[in-house]
Design a protein around this nucleic acid. Sequence first.
RNA 1: GUGGGUAUAGCUCAGCUGGUCAGAGCGCCACGUUGACAUCGUGGAGGCCAGUGGUUCGAAUCCACUUACCCACACCA
Length: 884
Amino acid sequence: MAEQLDKTYDPAKVEKKWYQYWEENELFSPPEDKEGKPFTIMMPPPNITGELHIGHAMDNTLQDIIIRWRRMQGYNTLWVPGTDHASIATEVKVVDKLRREENLSKDEVGREGFLDRAWQWKEEYGNRITEQIRNLGASCDWTRERFTMDEGCSEAVTEVFVKLYEEGLIYQGDYIVNWCPDCATTLSDIEVEHEEAEGKLYYINYPFKNEEGSITVATTRPETMLGDTGIAVNPDDERYQDLIGKKVILPLMNRELPIVEDDFVDSDFGTGMVKVTPAHDPNDFDMGERNDLEQVQVIGFDGKMTEAAGEYAGLTREECRQKVVADLEAADYLVKIEDHQHAVGHCYRCDEIVEPMISKQWFVDMEPLAEPAIKAVKEGDINFVPERFSRVYLNWMENIKDWCISRQLWWGHRIPVWYCQDCQHVNVARKRPDKCQECGSEDLKQDEDVLDTWFSSALWPFSTLGWPEETEDLNFYYPTDVLVTGRDIIFFWVARMIFMGLHFKGEKPFSDVYVHGLIRDAQGRKMSKSLGNGVDPLEVIDDYGADALRFMLITGNPPGNDMRFREERLEASRNFANKIWNAARFMLMHLEEEDQLDISNYQPEDLTMAEKWILNRFNEIVAKVNENMEKYLFGEVSKTLYDFVWSEFCDWYLELIKPRLYQEENNDDVRQAAELGQYVLANILKLLHPVMPFITEEIYQKLPGSQGSIMLQEWPEIKETFAFAETAESMELVQDIIRSIRNIRNEMKVDPGKKITALFEAEGKSNEVLKKAEVYLRELAGLEKLKIASSLADKPDKAATAVVQDVDIILPLEEMVDIAEEITRLEKEKEEIKSEIKRAEGKLANEGFVTQAPADLVEAEREKLEEFNQQLSRISARIQELKS
RNA sequence: GUGGGUAUAGCUCAGCUGGUCAGAGCGCCACGUUGACAUCGUGGAGGCCAGUGGUUCGAAUCCACUUACCCACACCA
């Protein structure tokens, strides 16, 4: 006998073992030689700050499904894992830790000391998350694991910076940027999150210079008025034509402000006059540039008012606002205050209110880079799945603004720029220059700043393959095939990879972008630390197993949609794993060590009805799975397999073969039943393996005749020799009959253990089918005696009847049957059939349907109608018999 | 403001290119344990697929509008 299984599946017992086995045998690594068709995925690198969260679990499950499937299909597959240094997020964590454990500030330990500690952090926490990814079963090639700040990736970053600078696509300049006073660094536009807030709109009078009267402007941020350097009106605003060129006096500061005209001003908002604060508002900055207005910085980088704010210097922004408002009111400048809803920018990391500030930073000129990136998606060279996300991408790309890439942080790629302390020349170089390229001075000082994390992430698809070196990996595996990621980082990451890939490789980084949704909690809320409603995937794995988690994450959810995390779905997945386990347990109870997985020595004519049926069904399942895999419809794949395993393989097939397995006369028959059964089981396991790698491996390797890891088996193919359409139809008839008998037994309250007698009246083909299926009917419908005839002479009155297709079923249940009730029951069925007939007749009476619908559909409808009519007459006849 | 998503059984959701698609899981009702599985089996009840109109021989499925909820983007002070 083959090895026997425990009664229930215990994932904890097998998962670690198999992962080690796979990794130690390097089954995740592609073959050494660059042969075959490559298939490549780059894992979106998780932050080293983090723990694995449920989103990562989803993301990596999807990638693993794709890569395991392609690997089994024979592709030369590479899945590169790695981690991201996450500049700002990690720095915040390390600063915290430094404060907590050593009571030191960043400045107190200095740049070097700080970086030492950051690297220690990376060692400790970077490894933790990769361990967690292993728990999920991810079959990525750990021998090629990368880190965004490792030597190669860093070289790529420097190369890209220098090249872009040389091409004039990176420039340095004083522009208005987003400044987070708390993180003390700039942020890119997309790192600022706008939140609607209830604010106030303050109307303030600014008196004219040299004449009576005043104008009124509205602002949501009165404290910025201290930095006002102009007033703007729309040139088309007839009300204010004669004001243009005049001057007003800025209250509290006594500064003269010119009134200028600018298209930006919306005449319908507020008073139609805008105070212009070029140093503290992006729009005002632009207006200031256009109208040559002064820039007065009244808010400092620490979030406090500067000396330029006069008596308000040193106050926080909020304190200053209160004092300004009070002072305006006291001096009678304040006209009114209205409630006003507006969007306030917050730092995506620390939630501090972001301050627009003028500052000298490095920027990437986006337009030239965006153009090909737009084209690639528009022309279908790169496809978003689902397609709708391409619009999100395009919308952003087409309105892109220059990208501020310098960050006032220490943890990250330091900007490869050295300023000459003598001639101020800006030296941009791949390595620290010995002397100034301009004046030869050796007194050079490197830019203090580091680059935006996403600058290095943008290079991930090719930096991980060795770029800028022309490595074999790069030549073979680039471009990658699909990028799998959450819809929340389309801008941060996907977009940037696309333009960087196109620019530096001259080729798209990937063909498909599979975008998945977010996982929400059971109430549909976003999971967040503050709500504490996050789900720890490791706990889930402990409780239910990685396979159940994986199955749950992809089932019943179409691409791109958010999904709710519900415990009961996890239970259903675990139960499914257990179902598979027990099906295997059953098979193994009947398998011998010598049994084979290869069934090619069985000829079609040797196969039983049940075997033909299941093989035929399996063909159909393979087709469906393949089709949905290609379309990234993994939810459909898992659903298909779930239904097939549970409702067909277990509920029917295993039950159908039991009589053969348990009989003792003919051992050849037993062996055939066992071998065919394990063949189907093994192939189901293969189809399931990408989704549930652990349990499928555990079972597969126990099957007699199996060789090596299921990971390396060939993906099942559709076999023409297993196409048995006719048997499939016959089997359906048998199933319908069995269901029908079970139904009657139940309604008649026949003891489930009790064997009953059944009479079947059927002609022609159905008659033959029934005769062949006798043993199935006997076992599955609980029959003892049965009689199959083309015509029955004396039908007992005391019997329950049913009509299935062209078969009359008569169950002589004697005393259990109340003839009156039986008539009622049949009348009810008759009504149902009648309504079906009405429907079919209606359809066929519709000329449009008959002439325009596909011929086979019309034919099918006709056949149905005929069948229903037959059933109707049979039932009517039976009712007559009972009545008379 | 622009763009997008979602509305299907009591609950959570599938339903891909319009015609056996009205489905699943959980829940509910009835019955059932000498073995593959109670993490189970058998049988059953439950929905005019948000509303209106249109296209079509035929619509949960396509189009328009309406209603409700959600999200992303956006420089309206």
